[in-house]
């Protein structure tokens, strides 16, 4: 298989890294070569976060190049727009519509763009939106957003649902497993009507 390129973007603390980890571990379990890139430290303090996952027969660079992404998983609308140039022409955007304010907005130096959803639609052909935060709260914890989006992304990833679930179970503590399984199911079902 040619290399499949995923870019995952969000706000520090939203759990972008766990989603990336599970996608890359699933890819390995399915026999692919896989690489994942992320950044820790200062970049995580409520700032913008981007993670790359690439898998296929043989992967060299761990970074997705601009214009190469097959799928962009956005945890937050503004952060989805920020990295939309990573997508290739017919790449797919899957994003959470729940907005998280930025510090520049909170101090009144900048405004959160009202038309952020339009901006995203204008800059990509295949856009799929969901209120993942609402679904996570429904599952029992707002922090399960990353697992909702993991579930929803399977519509567009060449990965096996059961293997993803296995990787998920290996990665999270038993205490929160029930909530996360629910979150996973809610995400998985969300795009069921789409062919």
């Amino acid at each position: 298989m040619r290399v499949f390129n995923v870019v995952i973007a969000g706000v520090g603390g939203q759990g972008v890294l766990l989603t990336s980890k599970i996608i890359s571990e699933t890819a390995l379990l399915q026999g692919f070569d896989a690489k994942q890139s992320e950044v820790h430290g200062m970049a995580q303090r409520g700032g913008s976060v981007i993670s790359h996952v690439r898998f296929g027969e043989k992967v060299y660079s761990p970074i997705v190049s601009e214009g190469e992404g097959d799928l962009l998983i956005g945890f937050e609308p503004l952060e989805t727009a920020r990295y939309i140039h990573f997508l290739k022409k017919d790449g797919i955007v899957l994003y959470n519509t729940y907005r998280v304010s930025s510090i520049t907005v909170s101090i009144g130096a900048e405004k959160y763009p009202d038309d952020i959803d339009e901006i995203i639609r204008k800059n990509a052909k295949n856009v799929f939106a969901l209120d993942g935060t609402k679904l996570a709260v429904e599952a029992g914890d707002k922090r399960a957003l990353n697992v909702v989006l993991l579930g929803a992304s399977l519509k567009f990833l060449p990965l096996d649902k059961n293997i993803v679930l296995k990787a998920l179970e290996n990665s999270i503590s038993k205490k929160v497993l029930a909530i996360n399984k629910k979150a996973f199911e809610l995400g998985l079902e969300f795009f069921n009507d789409i062919k």
Partner: peptide, 19 residues
Amino acid sequence: KVEKKEPLTNLTKRPPTFC
């Protein structure tokens, strides 16, 4: 030159901050 899309300009910034 590789043909590639440029990042969107004038997007609201999101620098790191105190929790």
